[in-house]
């Protein structure tokens, strides 16, 4: 070995290589364990669209997971196997066939995932709402959710920003002169019947907010100046939390609501009850 090379042979070349390899193996094992053991899972899905999302997630987890394991272990193997033990490095400049192969394989895998993911997205977003969908308007502001049902006439009353006054009981600014608004039901918790399509109309009074229910796997920003529809059909009775995920000010972390999915009879009773109170 020339004097130049011997000056730079690091002491104990085995140990960083070994440590790196061990570390990467531990990383892979720990990560795989957490996923496989479902230590911190998302809550169970409660709608068909949510199930599609989960299926796509699982498929992606398999593909990405396999790539993760192979790449990290490949790295571990390479650094360990080819640590400097006095050998000569091979002067390999590349391999065109290999480049083409792995470009093609990754293209197939990634674009394939993207194309397969279309269905879960399309189901939730491209399909217009069912004709018998229950329409509920969701108004967001700093830092509450307010829900409005159109009432028996099926029409929402006109809103006027200058009429907005939460202290006097008109948080949405419903125009009292509009007859369609007289039977509108305004509540602070969202109640929907199970197994019925629901169309939420998201809007915002001030800044950009968001409506997210984990169990529905449904998330949508509420943008001032826009009225954004989202559709879902909840298939499991229960109470679920609604959270705001779009930074909306100092109360962002406290902006949450409740979604009650109830039997049809309970829903009818709820509407009747609220109509009397409004």
């Amino acid at each position: 070995m020339s004097s130049v090379a011997s000056r730079f042979k690091s002491r104990g070349t085995a140990s960083p290589a070994f440590l790196l390899a061990v570390f990467l193996v531990i990383l892979v094992a720990a990560t795989v364990y957490v996923f496989v053991a479902r230590l911190y899972p998302a809550p169970p899905p409660i709608s068909r669209d949510a199930v599609l999302v989960d299926r796509q997630y699982d498929l992606t987890l398999w593909v990405a997971g396999a790539a993760f394991v192979l790449a990290q272990l490949g790295l571990a193997w390479a650094v360990f196997r080819y640590r400097d033990c006095g050998q000569q490095a091979s002067h390999i400049r590349g391999n065109v066939a290999l480049e083409i192969l792995w470009t093609f394989v990754t293209l197939l895998a990634f674009v394939g995932l993207g194309i397969l993911g279309r269905n879960a997205w399309a189901g939730a977003r491209f399909t217009p709402s069912a004709p018998d969908a229950i329409q509920i308007e969701v108004t967001t502001n700093q830092f509450v959710y307010t829900f409005r049902y159109p009432g028996p006439d099926g029409k929402f009353g006109r809103l006027d920003p200058s009429l907005v006054s939460a202290p006097t009981g008109n948080p949405l600014g419903i125009d009292a002169n509009d007859p369609a608004g007289k039977d509108d039901i305004v509540v602070s918790e969202l109640t929907v019947p199970v197994n019925r399509p629901v169309e939420l109309l998201l809007r915002s009074q001030d800044v950009v907010h968001n409506f997210f229910v984990r169990e529905l796997r449904l998330q949508q920003d509420a943008v001032p100046g826009m009225l954004i529809p989202v559709n879902f059909t909840a298939e499991r009775i229960g109470t679920y939390e609604i959270v705001c995920t779009q930074l909306c000010g100092l109360g962002h972390y406290k902006m949450n609501g409740l979604l009650h999915v109830v039997p049809q009879s309970d829903y009818a009773a709820f509407l009747k009850r609220e109509a009397l109170v409004q």
Binding site: A71, L75, Y82, R83, A89, G94
Partner: peptide, 24 residues
Amino acid sequence: SIGVPSAVKTFNWLGTLWGGKIQF
């Protein structure tokens, strides 16, 4: 799609290590 050139780079980094004389 942007994952593709990124993956290609990763494979090439592994390829650079492969057959090397690695000094840590």
